[in-house]
Each structure stands twice: as C-alpha cells, then as structure tokens.
C-alpha cells in the first residue's frame, strides 16, 4: 500500500532558526496518528507547510504519490487534504448550518450560482445536515456560529473541513482550551468521525490521554526534528522521548 502522505527531508528555517529540520515520515491511508512535542517544536509549522500556507526551503511533500510542495492552499485542499485550526476558524456571523453548507457547496462546485437561494441546494443542505448530525451539532444548526460554546466552535471547524470530503484530515490541537469532560467527549467524537468518514487523520495534541488513547502511530517533534516515531507503546518506552518531553511519570 502506498502512503497517502509522504514527507521527505523537509526543511524550513526563519533567519537561521530551524523550525523544520530534515523531517521525513509517511502516513498510511486510514491511519490515525498523533504529533506531539513541546511548544515551539514546529508542529503547527509542519501543518502549514503541508497545506501550502508556508513555503518550505527544501524537501518533498507527496500526497497520493504526487508532489504538492509549492502548491497554493486552494489546490491542496482540492486534492483532498482537510484542516481544522488551533483557534477555531469559522464564519462567526453565519449560522452553524451555513458554515458547513458553504463547504458542501464549495465541494460540489456550486458557489458560482448567483441567483438561486442557498436553501434551494437540497443536496448540499442535506449533506451539511448529515455532517452536523455526526458532529452532534444538529440542534444548534440555526444558531449563529459565534454564539456556540468554545468546544462546539472547534467541532464546527472540523465539520467545515469534513464537508470537503478529505482523504487526509489534519487537526491542530482539537482539545486545546477544553474542560476535562469536553476533552473526553472530543476524543470519542474524533474516533467516531475517523471511522465514519474513512480518513487518514493526523492530529497535534498535548493531551496525552487522547494521544495514547486513540493514535495508532505517534510522532515526536523536538526543535523542528523528528525525535521518534512508533506505536504508543514504543513511544512510551522510548528513553529519549521521556527525557526530552514526556517526563518520568509515563
């Protein structure tokens, strides 16, 4: 099986500071994996490079075997990489339904319809409602997005990404800023979405319950470099990782 995402010797530096240093790894289709590491390890930078928000200095990024390095975010998202952001990136003054619906319309190439009401696009609307159902946001569909609770806004962000039917979904700290109960809920939900939407899923996370609870593969970044890669058990037993990041309690 060919990997869905291949990262090869990726490099990026800002004024002499290496934020991504010779990083290489493969993500397999249908795999759920986590990227962990201390703050400033270059985790979000790596996501930005994958999704074309940031230019890489050197290296290669292949998606389904084809180069996507140097492509614009628009083209990369069209290829099938979805992304949710650390700070929920939503459309605050639109309804929850419309937030997802615009993505469904976009996926169907229906955003250039000038004179038909949004409601008349029944397939996109049904699709959006189905996604809200999966996210557990159905009963809030008519509310404005900014009125949602913090955790729900992050779910909505994921919903927008899912509406584009990606093969690979990147989640940047899905539980950041959440209460312990919300974290538990989010963990279950992400696992559910991963199965339901048949995705390869990569998430950045600081919550170790979640990382070791649902990831099949864990990658550790430190100062821009890949420190370790393996199953949760291997990572837990890795001396380097323990000293560098996890600490003794693991």
């Amino acid at each position: 099986m060919t990997p869905i995402l291949q990262i090869q010797s990726l490099d990026k530096s800002f004024g002499g500071l290496h934020v991504t240093a010779n990083v290489s790894f493969d993500v397999m289709p249908g795999e759920i994996s986590a990227i962990i590491g201390p703050n400033g390890a270059g985790k979000t930078t790596l996501f930005n490079q994958i999704t074309g928000h940031l230019r890489s200095d050197s290296g290669r990024i292949l998606f389904n075997g084809q180069n996507i390095l140097g492509h614009s975010p628009q083209r990369i998202v069209a290829r099938g990489i979805g992304r949710a952001f650390q700070i929920a990136s939503i459309f605050p003054d639109e309804t929850v339904l419309d937030n997802v619906r615009i993505a469904c319309l976009s996926k169907r190439g229906e955003t250039r319809k000038y004179l038909r009401a949004v409601d008349a696009f029944t397939e996109a609307t049904d699709d959006a409602r189905a996604i809200l159902e999966s996210l557990g946001l159905s009963d809030q569909a008519e509310r404005l997005a900014f009125e949602l609770a913090h955790g729900d806004q992050k779910m909505l962000d994921i919903g927008i990404a899912l509406a584009l039917r990606p093969n690979l979904l990147l989640l940047d700290e899905p539980t950041a800023g959440m209460s312990p109960e919300e974290r538990l809920h989010t963990k279950e939900l992400i696992l559910k979405l991963w199965k339901e939407f048949d995705l390869a899923l990569v998430f950045i996370e600081h919550d170790m319950d979640m990382v070791f609870g649902i990831a099949q593969t864990v990658r550790v970044l430190q100062q821009g470099a890949l420190l370790a890669e393996g199953t949760p058990e291997q990572i837990r037993a890795n001396k380097e990782v323990i000293t560098a990041y996890l600490g003794e309690e693991f």
Partner: peptide
C-alpha cells in the same frame, strides 16, 4: 442569499478559511 452571496459574507468574516475551502 445565493451561494455566491454566502461566499462573499464568508470572505468578509474569514478570508483565510475561504481559501481553505478551495475558493
């Protein structure tokens, strides 16, 4: 109130996200 109008409102509220819808 068409999809075009919705895209326009989204452009006002969060252009970066619109780009990442592929628009």
């Amino acid at each position: 109130y068409s999809p075009f109008g919705l895209i326009l409102r989204c452009v006002q509220q969060n252009p970066a996200r619109v780009r990442f819808l592929g628009r």
